[in-house]
Amino acid sequence: RKEMTAACTPRRRIINLTSVLSLQEEINEQGHEVLREMLHNHSFVGCVNPQWALAQHQTKLYLLNTTKLSEELFYQILIYDFANFGVLRLSEPAPLFDLAMLALDSPESGWTEEDGPKEGLAEYIVEFLKKKAEMLADYFSLEIDEEGNLIGLPLLIDNYVPPLEGLPIFILRLATEVNWDEEKECFESLSKECAMFYSIRKQYISEESTLSGQQSEVPGSIPNSWKWTVEHIVYKALRSHILPPKHFTEDGNILQLANLPDLYKVFERC
């Protein structure tokens, strides 16, 4: 597991931080080997919608929660590849102030007048994250320049770009939802926020969305749709870069829909 690298990086740093090793061990302890084997050997059937997909393993048909699986995938990559990410360069710098204002204007932020003026909160978020810029760049390849612009994001899987519609809320939550006081809790909560931002979430995906850094293989055609990215990038990574937690067998994120021999018997009677 320590050699797990989802995106190509030129050289690998050895990380011996106790906090990170502890988080890696927790993933191992909570892992479910049968689910790992199923995901490793599954045959992708198709997307139901951005949140759900169908896959077959041996004779069984499964309904998989793409949102939760991708979130767990990105969390584990962030923990196992800690401080070893490439950088996704933004085509132009994104001012943190503008991103924070967009987030505060969104109902998702939960902002009320009692929280104070949005401009003041946005300025605080910019200054707060600028103070964390060195650590964010060093460990997470999340790059913020001296003017308070976001200029780079971590490359977690080759050819995958997170849904940038979720970027404003991500920046807001970096400042408000991460435990910045304790090292282990900081790395864990920061990785979880980043994983949620990178995950496939239906509120940020339309039929026209593209999450891939590449064009489709047909010359002159439109960019790959999110469905292509889910199948050929995300579920491909799920084959080798995730140890599913045991609770996925109990919380409805992986559901067995049918045993195909039983279905064949039904059709034979028709």
Results as ranks from 00 to 15, higher is better:
residue 1 R to G: 11
residue 1 R to W: 10
residue 4 M to E: 09
residue 7 A to V: 08
residue 7 A to D: 07
residue 9 T to R: 11
residue 11 R to G: 07
residue 11 R to K: 06
residue 11 R to P: 08
residue 14 I to N: 10
residue 15 I to R: 04
residue 15 I to S: 05
residue 16 N to E: 11
residue 16 N to V: 06
residue 18 T to E: 13
residue 18 T to L: 08
residue 18 T to A: 08
residue 19 S to K: 04
residue 19 S to H: 05
residue 19 S to L: 03
residue 20 V to H: 03
residue 20 V to Q: 00
residue 21 L to G: 06
residue 21 L to K: 15
residue 24 Q to V: 06
residue 24 Q to F: 03
residue 28 N to S: 09
residue 30 Q to N: 15
residue 31 G to N: 08
residue 32 H to D: 15
residue 34 V to E: 14
residue 35 L to N: 06
residue 36 R to P: 00
residue 36 R to E: 12
residue 37 E to D: 15
residue 37 E to H: 13
residue 38 M to D: 01
residue 38 M to K: 03
residue 39 L to S: 04
residue 39 L to P: 00
residue 40 H to Y: 10
residue 40 H to S: 13
residue 40 H to A: 09
residue 41 N to K: 14
residue 44 F to I: 04
residue 44 F to N: 02
residue 46 G to L: 15
residue 46 G to P: 00
residue 46 G to V: 05
residue 47 C to Y: 11
residue 50 P to K: 09
residue 53 A to S: 09
residue 55 A to H: 01
residue 56 Q to N: 11
residue 57 H to N: 08
residue 57 H to W: 06
residue 59 T to F: 10
residue 59 T to E: 14
residue 62 Y to V: 08
residue 64 L to E: 00
residue 65 N to A: 00
residue 66 T to K: 01
residue 66 T to M: 00
residue 67 T to M: 04
residue 68 K to L: 10
residue 68 K to R: 14
residue 71 E to W: 05
residue 71 E to Q: 13
residue 71 E to N: 05
residue 71 E to P: 02
residue 72 E to K: 04
residue 75 Y to T: 02
residue 75 Y to M: 01
residue 80 Y to P: 00
residue 80 Y to S: 07
residue 83 A to P: 04
residue 83 A to F: 01
residue 83 A to H: 04
residue 86 G to C: 12
residue 86 G to N: 15
residue 87 V to F: 15
residue 89 R to I: 15
residue 91 S to H: 12
residue 91 S to Y: 14
residue 94 A to N: 15
residue 94 A to S: 14
residue 95 P to E: 06
residue 96 L to C: 09
residue 96 L to H: 00
residue 96 L to Q: 00
residue 98 D to C: 07
residue 98 D to A: 07
residue 103 A to L: 02
residue 105 D to I: 06
residue 107 P to I: 12
residue 109 S to W: 08
residue 110 G to Y: 12
residue 111 W to N: 05
residue 111 W to I: 07
residue 113 E to T: 08
residue 114 E to N: 12
residue 114 E to V: 08
residue 118 K to Y: 06
residue 119 E to K: 08
residue 121 L to E: 09
residue 121 L to R: 14
residue 121 L to A: 07
residue 122 A to H: 00
residue 123 E to C: 11
residue 124 Y to K: 14
residue 124 Y to M: 15
residue 124 Y to Q: 13
residue 126 V to I: 05
residue 128 F to V: 09
residue 129 L to M: 12
residue 129 L to Y: 06
residue 131 K to E: 11
residue 132 K to R: 09
residue 132 K to W: 10
residue 132 K to N: 07
residue 135 M to T: 06
residue 135 M to A: 04
residue 135 M to R: 03
residue 136 L to Y: 01
residue 136 L to F: 04
residue 138 D to A: 05
residue 138 D to G: 04
residue 139 Y to Q: 03
residue 141 S to V: 02
residue 143 E to A: 07
residue 143 E to L: 10
residue 144 I to P: 02
residue 145 D to T: 07
residue 145 D to K: 00
residue 145 D to L: 01
residue 146 E to K: 11
residue 147 E to P: 08
residue 147 E to L: 09
residue 148 G to I: 03
residue 150 L to A: 02
residue 150 L to K: 00
residue 151 I to R: 08
residue 151 I to M: 13
residue 152 G to I: 03
residue 153 L to Y: 03
residue 154 P to T: 00
residue 154 P to C: 00
residue 154 P to Q: 01
residue 155 L to P: 00
residue 157 I to K: 02
residue 158 D to V: 11
residue 160 Y to S: 01
residue 163 P to E: 12
residue 163 P to Q: 08
residue 164 L to Q: 09
residue 167 L to R: 00
residue 167 L to K: 00
residue 169 I to K: 09
residue 172 L to M: 10
residue 173 R to M: 02
residue 174 L to P: 02
residue 177 E to M: 07
residue 178 V to S: 02
residue 178 V to Q: 00
residue 178 V to F: 02
residue 178 V to M: 03
residue 179 N to I: 10
residue 181 D to Y: 08
residue 182 E to V: 12
residue 182 E to A: 12
residue 182 E to W: 08
residue 184 K to F: 06
residue 185 E to G: 11
residue 185 E to C: 09
residue 189 S to D: 13
residue 189 S to T: 12
residue 190 L to K: 00
residue 191 S to N: 01
residue 192 K to D: 02
residue 192 K to H: 12
residue 194 C to I: 14
residue 196 M to N: 08
residue 197 F to M: 07
residue 197 F to K: 01
residue 199 S to R: 02
residue 199 S to V: 00
residue 200 I to R: 01
residue 201 R to V: 02
residue 203 Q to T: 15
residue 203 Q to A: 11
residue 203 Q to S: 13
residue 204 Y to P: 04
residue 205 I to R: 03
residue 206 S to P: 14
residue 210 T to A: 07
residue 212 S to G: 12
residue 212 S to R: 15
residue 212 S to H: 14
residue 214 Q to M: 11
residue 215 Q to K: 11
residue 216 S to V: 14
residue 216 S to I: 11
residue 218 V to C: 15
residue 220 G to L: 11
residue 221 S to C: 13
residue 222 I to T: 10
residue 222 I to P: 12
residue 225 S to A: 12
residue 226 W to G: 00
residue 228 W to K: 07
residue 232 H to A: 04
residue 232 H to T: 05
residue 235 Y to Q: 00
residue 235 Y to I: 03
residue 236 K to G: 10
residue 236 K to I: 02
residue 237 A to T: 07
residue 238 L to A: 08
residue 238 L to Y: 02
residue 239 R to E: 02
residue 240 S to D: 14
residue 241 H to W: 09
residue 241 H to F: 13
residue 241 H to D: 07
residue 243 L to W: 13
residue 245 P to W: 00
residue 245 P to F: 02
residue 245 P to I: 01
residue 247 H to A: 13
residue 251 D to S: 12
residue 251 D to C: 10
residue 251 D to L: 04
residue 252 G to A: 14
residue 259 N to T: 10
residue 264 Y to L: 14
residue 265 K to Q: 14
residue 265 K to L: 05
residue 266 V to G: 15
residue 268 E to I: 05
residue 269 R to Y: 04
